[in-house]
Amino acid sequence: MNKILFESKSKMQKNERVINKTLTILGMVSIFTTIGIILSLTEETIQFFRSVSIIEFFTSRKWTPMFEPANYGVLPLVMGTFLIVIFSSIISIPIGLGSAIYLSEYAPKKVRKILKPVLEILAGIPSIVYGYFALTSITPLIRSIFPSASVFNALSAGIAVGIMTIPMVSSLSEDAMMAVPDSLRLGAYALGSTKFEVSTKIVVPAAFSGIAASFILSISRAIGETMIVAMAAGSTPKLTLNPLESIQTMTGYIVQISLGDVPAGSIGYKTIFAVGTLLFAITLILNIISRNIVKKYRRAY
C-alpha cells in the first residue's frame, strides 16, 4: 500500500508552466482580434482618404463611387441607416418594453414559462429569414396601404429589423426589472397602488438604466444589421426621409460591393473599408455608452 508511486514533482510543475503559457496565449486571441479589426479597417481607410478628402466624405450629399462622375459623400448611406434605426425602434422599443413589463410584473408563472421560450425562438431566427419575411410579406402589405411605395423600401426593412430586436429589448429590460427588489414593490402596494402604478412609477424608474441600455444596444444592433436591409431596403443611396422609397444603408453598401467582383486595391474595395470603419466606430461608441449608463446609474439597493 505504501509503495504507491506518485508522479515526479518536476514533471508536474513543467506541465503546469506549459499549460499556463498556452492558456495565456489563448486569452490573447481576443485582443489580437480587436487589433486585427482595427488594423485591417484603418489600413484601407487611410488609402481611401489619400484619394478622397475627409471633407467630401462627410459633407457631399451624393454617394456614387462606382459611376462617373464619382461622388464620395457618405451621408446618404448614413441617412439610410438612420431611417432603419427610426422605424425599427418604433417597433422594438415600445413592444419590447411592454412585453418586458408584462413578463416581469404581470404574467403568471405559467404564462411566463410559455412566452419566454417563444421570445427566445424569435431571437434565434436568422436575419435572412426576417429579410425574406420583409420582402415577401411586409412589403406587399405596405404597398397595399401605400401604393406609391417602392418594391424595396426603408419602412419594410425597418419593421423587420424592429421585430428581430424585440427579444433583445425585452429580455434585457426584463432582467433590469427583475433586479428591482420586491421590497420597493411591496412598499407601494401597501400604500394602495395598482399594479399599473407600481410598474410605471416604481419599477420602470428603478430599472431605468438597464432599460435605457437595452434601447441603445438594440439601436446598435439595428445599425449593424445587414441581410434584412440588403434584401428589403434596396440599393439606391439616397438622402431622403421618405420611408417608402428605396434607400441603401452602410451595411447594405458593403454587401452590394462584396457581391460583385471587386479587385483588391480598387477604389470600390477601399470604399467598403471606409464605410466599415465608420460603422465600427458608431456601434462601438453606442456599446460603450450603454455600458457606461448601466455602470453609472446602477443603484445600490
Partner: peptide, 19 residues
C-alpha cells in the same frame, strides 16, 4: 475587450476575414 467584440456588427468580422 471581449464585451466590446460581442457588440461588433457581424459584417465587420467579414472585413477582418477578408483582409
Amino acid at each position: 475587450n471581449i464585451a466590446n467584440l460581442a457588440g461588433v456588427p457581424s459584417i465587420i468580422y467579414g472585413m477582418l476575414g477578408l483582409a
